[in-house]
Design a protein around this nucleic acid. Structure first.
Lengths: 244, 244
DNA sequence: CCGACGCTTCGGCCCGCACCGAAGCATCCG
DNA sequence: CGGATGCTTCGGTGCGGGCCGAAGCGTCGG
């Protein structure tokens, strides 16, 4: 092969990848989540509760000083929302987007086989029903989503979800004030990717309202210090009847 | 009493928080993405192209040794999909889920502050059509591959590609004896990664037979002392009709 | 067969940062 | 008002890991 042709091939083969100093910086956020202690803190907060610095320190297994340092970093990065109350300081995830990113990473880790522990009975319970920030996740949540979508109550497009008129009526029948939900600043319906089921479940204001309603009616109960959601026997029957 | 670095030991020491230590390990994946060099590599690969280790090293601004180390880690974690071809080794994102996670993180980072972007490709003469070993490469070859795959003539899995029954009929209609190809020792269909397009095109016995057929029918002509392939005007029309 | 090229491995350097104890603020309580 | 409690800040320490040059394979080209 001649020199010219060879050189031309090389020129083609070399992509111009220099000068990439713009765009979202994923490494800063990912590095924050990448520390095991901070990841534990975020995982605990994924349960949706606001916890104090000391509680998070104990949950993560580090000293108060170390936890405080981590919480400062996470807060300054905009991942946490601190609320000072008396001499306590409560921390929660900043918003739903943070929770969604964490769930997405969890899904990615799950399919690559990066698990913290061997799958056991507790893990199976987590897969069935758990809290994802402020709404329900797991197999039951996916069943609910599919049921709502299958009956036309949810209008699912590629990336967005909306509540149909019939859906609004159905939700109202469950005892949820849908007009009040529209008054909130957050979107009514959002999809969240379930890490265990690898399918969509319902998030947003409606997803949160449903979980609150389920708890208020005694359909479900949250397990202490865990993301587990346990169905009561009558609650499971009612849930299955509503979303079977 | 200094706490052990292992999260597992800590979980044992504080059983009250054991419930949190289940599910996927977010921190492993996030820590991988959290390194700026690795994040740059992943961001470049988010463009969809498969790039060599050297190209990724240049893009990330590190030595080949450093890039190789990072690529090894990302590959072992299941985030990248390496393809050995000749003395090159091409890396691409493992699957769509990885891309989705990166996009989610990018979105999170964007709403929190920091920005960055990635560059566009480069244009050259040989991009349209050229010889790759014994088959055709370039944009035209990629169009042909996509056309065959889109009509179900080629059954494409991740690492292998096969000719469907309908595909065999279509190929026979082009004047190629498919039964003779199966008698050859070399595999009928193989995927080859396109230099310029960074996407798959058809190699193997069928890829070679197609190029021979195109030349025999006067659709294309090879340029002397070059890898360039020039379409004749009627040849281009016929090719577009067959694989448009 | 030899040289060029692409990539990986190896050894060593060194910076970053997670971690802690103790001290420093803030807040609530008796 | 002390004294207890919750949280943060401050030095200091140690480890992990990112980085490179050089050497070690494998592949391609002549």
């Amino acid at each position: 092969m001649r020199a010219e042709a060879s050189g031309l091939v090389r020129a083609v083969a070399r992509p111009q990848t220099a000068g990439m100093r713009q765009g979202p910086d994923i490494s800063r956020i990912a590095a924050l989540i990448g520390d095991p202690t901070r990841a534990n803190i975020l995982s605990v907060l994924l349960g949706g509760q606001a916890l104090t610095a000391r509680e998070l320190a104990e949950a993560a297994g580090v000293s108060a000083a170390t936890a405080s340092d981590h919480l400062k970093q996470l807060t300054e990065a905009g991942l946490l929302w601190p609320r000072k109350q008396g001499r306590h300081r409560f921390f929660a995830l900043a918003d739903e987007q943070v929770a969604q990113a964490l769930e997405t990473l969890a899904g990615l880790a799950a399919t690559r086989g990066h698990m913290r522990t061997q799958p056991g009975p507790n893990d199976a319970a987590l897969r069935e029903a758990r809290v994802c920030y402020d709404h329900m996740a797991g197999a039951a949540a996916v069943r609910m989503f599919d049921s709502l979508a299958g009956r036309g109550f949810l209008v699912v497009s590629r990336e967005s979800v909306g509540l149909s008129a019939e859906g609004a009526g159905f939700i109202a029948g469950l005892g949820i004030d849908t007009t009040a939900l529209t008054a909130l600043r957050r979107p009514m319906c959002r999809v969240c990717l379930d890490w265990s089921e690898r399918r969509s479940h319902l998030a947003g204001a409606l997803g949160a309202a449903l979980l609150v309603r389920f708890q208020a009616q005694g359909w479900v109960r949250r397990v202490e210090d865990s993301r587990h959601i346990r169905f009561t026997p009558p609650g499971l029957r009612a849930f299955s009847a509503a979303f079977g």
